[in-house]
């Protein structure tokens, strides 16, 4: 069972206090988007064996959503950061690259 540190309140919460929210950094496509764009937004999800960015909500705590980078194979957690991020922070990306030299980036 995972533990993740909520960047909003600093609590090191365990998985039972959290709600998982799936892949992070999706771009919303609304009216006017093509079928392909909408399909990608709505249905296509990454399922990497390795580095993954996810949404989590500190549901039994401060109630805030945050984002986490972890390895789906080893469950190593590289870091958590605010949900109000367009992309993973540069220092987190650097840390991941140092630990996983073959990582192809978050996009």
């Amino acid at each position: 069972m995972l533990t993740l540190e909520c960047p909003c309140c600093g609590v090191k919460a365990e998985e039972t206090e959290l709600q998982a929210g799936g892949e992070a950094h999706l771009k919303r496509y609304g009216p006017g988007s093509t079928d392909e764009e909408f399909d990608g937004y709505m249905f296509s999800r990454k399922n990497p064996k390795g580095v993954h960015f996810e949404r989590w909500r500190h549901a039994y705590g401060c109630g805030k959503w945050f984002l986490a980078a972890r390895c789906t194979a080893t469950l190593e957690v590289f870091g958590t950061y605010p949900a109000q991020s367009k992309e993973p922070p540069a220092d987190l990306q650097a840390k991941i690259r140092a630990k996983r030299p073959n990582w192809e980036g978050y996009k």
């Binding site: 609590v11 919460a13 039972t16 039994y60 401060c62």
Partner: peptide, 10 residues
């Protein structure tokens, strides 16, 4: 103050 769960409730 610690917000958490008590068994199955907030």
């Amino acid at each position: 103050i610690r917000r958490t769960r008590a068994a199955q409730v907030a």
